[in-house]
Design a protein around this nucleic acid. Structure first.
Lengths: 199, 199
DNA sequence: GTCTATACTCCGATAGAC
DNA sequence: GTCTATCGGAGTATAGAC
């Protein structure tokens, strides 16, 4: 059964890790909304209150499951922000985030298939600012409306494109096509005023 | 406003319409998830059970609120499907759906801001097939993976682009930029194999 | 520190009386 | 059509046993 931890996480999380592991399984099987605290407790052979000892609320469990991927996103954003050229910033972010999407394809499936997760993620202050940060990199220092709309559309479409279009596509195919979409959307056009960042 | 009854729905709708109207107000104020049946009942001065006389479930209320826009989408899909050229089909659908988005901008705000709505819409059989129908038109008869990914990204990004990028944009601006995004994403590239048009 | 037992509130939903 | 009453289940909370 749950033999996943030997001595790697001795204190600070034995039962906690079990909860996260069980939650991940159940989320994958039945979605987040379809998974109650009772189910998680049953799978661990404990009571709801025991689960509640480790997490103050269900949303915290969801966040714990997703957190590793979020840390990676933050790293990608940092890498991108370090670049000097706006074009390079966009490209670094684009490649990084698409690569992350591919690597976490299954996790993204969970996130995307259950819209309740989006609600939890959207109301998390750290995550909300993370989304804004990604958008800021893509929009760039000279935000014209077209770029804002395009950046938003790309970020919103990222999830769905990965999940619903995933049927029968290999990782490489998916990566190629999402990257292509991103570049099409985000490539800056000539602007009327000519103040564009990267000539 | 309520022009719905001449003789078509003489009974069968007075209290029902009131519920829909109250629900629309509350949804706009607090979102769908944030609106309980109790709130709707309170606003009408009745009990939960009275609301339940008119609708069997909450999701039916949501669907009733959204239904008019859905009928329009179906019409747009029909118009597009009638066209002979794939390029024209795409363009008709694109223009029609973006125009609908603009006209129902406030309603789309409700839909987009509350992810629970997406769940309801996604589990409705009629709506699910409607989404597939839109995708089918955009993807076209020769579905290469790139086109599938692009179509999915566009449809997914449509909502978000309208809502979160809406800040400070006029209707015309928003329309222009979303159309631009759609054309960038959906314009067909040259295909490697050359089997494009007629297999 | 970890868990059990118990209970509370709210929700969506149903049954049946007026 | 609308009511009262109630249901089961959800998430949440606390007191206290080990």
């Amino acid at each position: 059964m749950t033999t996943q931890l030997d001595a790697t996480t001795p204190r600070a999380g034995a039962g906690r890790e079990k909860v996260v592991a069980a939650a991940l399984e159940l989320f994958a099987e039945r979605g987040v909304s379809g998974t109650s605290l009772q189910m998680i407790a049953d799978r661990l052979g404990v009571t709801k209150a025991a689960v509640y000892y480790h997490f103050k609320a269900k949303r915290d469990i969801v966040l714990a499951v997703v957190r590793p991927a979020l840390a990676e996103i933050a790293t990608i954003a940092e890498d991108a922000e370090r670049e000097r050229s706006q074009a390079v910033r966009t490209e670094v972010l684009l490649v990084g985030i698409v690569d992350l999407l591919i690597r976490h394809r299954r996790l993204y499936g969970i996130i995307e298939s259950d819209l309740a997760v989006g609600e939890i993620l959207a109301t998390d202050p750290i995550l909300a600012s993370l989304g804004e940060r990604l958008a800021a990199v893509l929009i760039g220092p000279d935000p014209d409306p077209g770029q804002i709309v395009a950046a938003n559309m790309f970020l919103a479409g990222l999830k769905s494109a990965g999940a619903s279009a995933a049927a029968g596509l290999t990782d490489d195919e998916l990566r190629t096509h999402i990257l292509d979409c991103g570049r099409r959307l985000l490539r800056r056009r000539r602007q009327p005023s000519g103040r564009t960042a990267t000539p």
